[in-house]
Simulated scan of single mutants.
Amino acid sequence: MTDDLTLPAKPQKKASRWGLFGPVLLLAIICAAWSGYWFYTAQRIQTQVLQHQKVLIAAGYQASFDPIRVTGFPYRMVIDFHRLNIISPSGKGLSAPEVRAEAYAYALDDWVAEAPQGLTLYRGRTGGIDRGKVSVMGTQLRASAFNLSKPVPTVAIEGDDLILAASDAGYPLPFTTAKALEFHLRPTANVADSADIMLNFTGAQGQPKSLAGDFGSARALSMQVEGAISHVSTIRDVGIASAWAAKGGQVSAFRLKLVQGGLTPLPTGTFTTGCQGGNAGGDLNVCASSDLLTPEATGHVNGKLNIEMAGTFNPIDVLGALNLISPDNMTIARPLLNMTLATQGTQTFTVEFHDGGAYIGPLKVSDAPILP
């Protein structure tokens, strides 16, 4: 007999498998939750598109496209529109064989789109007369819209190596080919319901009676336009210029620069106010600016446009190409303006818009531009 007491051995615990299967289970739960979110959101987006189509049709639009479905799982939301056709009651709109729109599934306020097969723009009616269509082709036709839920989103439209063709030669386009075109709209800093806009095209050429063609077909034209537009929500909600004008819409800090012949492209996102820097030998530099332009009750523009012009072009021909002197008034205006405007060197003068007309001094040279 012994005094040693031997305790019974404790049973060993089985090794936990949570360390092995826990992360796998957690990942499976996350994937299932994300998949549920994606398919739910995809269905909601498709429903919203169809509801918006019904709203447009009820408002008098033509709005049609082939049946759609949302793809892009797991990270993107992609909508492929085929035979897209959206035309407003005024006859303005667009159609395209194919438009692809997409956004990240976790950032549905930001979308990008492209039209790989080009598109057709409908120019609408002026005085009851249909202005026809414009075919637009290019190596890249793309658009983006960010912060869509905000009062003023950020929008960009861009095209490279553009070729434009109008169906009605009676309404010539500003240009028929261009190396690049871009349009930007962004909220004006510290100003509610206002947007900064910028339109820029480079390397443009055109047929006679077009903006680019009237300056000569041999040398390419570049133009940049900037300004700030008030009451943007009216344009976004109603889409009618007359309604915008009735709300007190205005364009401030308007700037335009037009350059022809042998110059580097205009800077993107900035405006160069000087007309200096052009090459000698016939290059044209035009700068136009206005602190404020407002619409009259008739829709005609009211305000002053300060113009600075340099180059060997006759200033009267430049004003005619810019439609600031109408063909009907050219015969009357030319002798008087030849007495006040030189044909060489830098010219500085003002065009005033009031009472539906455009005036240089006391001489009415054309009707004032009218809102579309």
Results as ranks from 00 to 15, higher is better:
His184Tyr: 05
Asp355Ile: 00
Thr273Pro: 15
Leu162Ala: 03
Ala253Met: 11
Leu371Lys: 04
Asn285Asp: 12
Thr126Phe: 11
Asp110His: 12
Leu181Val: 09
Lys179Arg: 12
Val99Tyr: 08
Gly170Glu: 01
Ile307Cys: 12
Pro265Arg: 08
Thr343Ser: 13
Phe39Met: 05
Asp355Cys: 00
Pro265Thr: 10
Tyr40Trp: 14
Gln53Trp: 00
Leu26Phe: 09
Leu94Lys: 01
Asp317Lys: 02
Asp109Val: 01
Val49Gly: 07
Ile57Asn: 05
Met137His: 14
Asp328Met: 04
Gly132Gln: 06
Ser88Val: 00
Thr126Ile: 11
Asp80Arg: 08
Ala115Phe: 06
Ile360His: 03
Asp80Tyr: 01
Thr343Pro: 00
Leu5Arg: 12
Ser222Arg: 15
Thr294Val: 15
Gly22Tyr: 03
Val301Asp: 11
Gly138Cys: 05
Val191Leu: 09
Tyr40Phe: 13
Phe183Lys: 02
Phe73Ile: 08
Gln140His: 06
Asn302Gln: 14
Leu148Gly: 08
Gly357Asp: 08
Leu162Tyr: 07
Phe349Met: 04
Phe65Trp: 11
Gln53Arg: 13
Leu5Pro: 02
Gly203Tyr: 11
Gly357His: 08
Leu221Lys: 07
His82Phe: 05
Thr71Ala: 12
Gln117Thr: 03
Ala32Asp: 05
Lys179Phe: 06
Glu114Thr: 14
Glu114Asn: 09
Leu108Asn: 02
Pro89Glu: 07
Phe65Lys: 05
Val136Ile: 09
Ile79Phe: 01
Leu292His: 09
Arg100Leu: 01
Ala169Cys: 00
Ile68Trp: 06
Gly127Glu: 04
His231Arg: 13
Gly227Phe: 11
Gly138Thr: 03
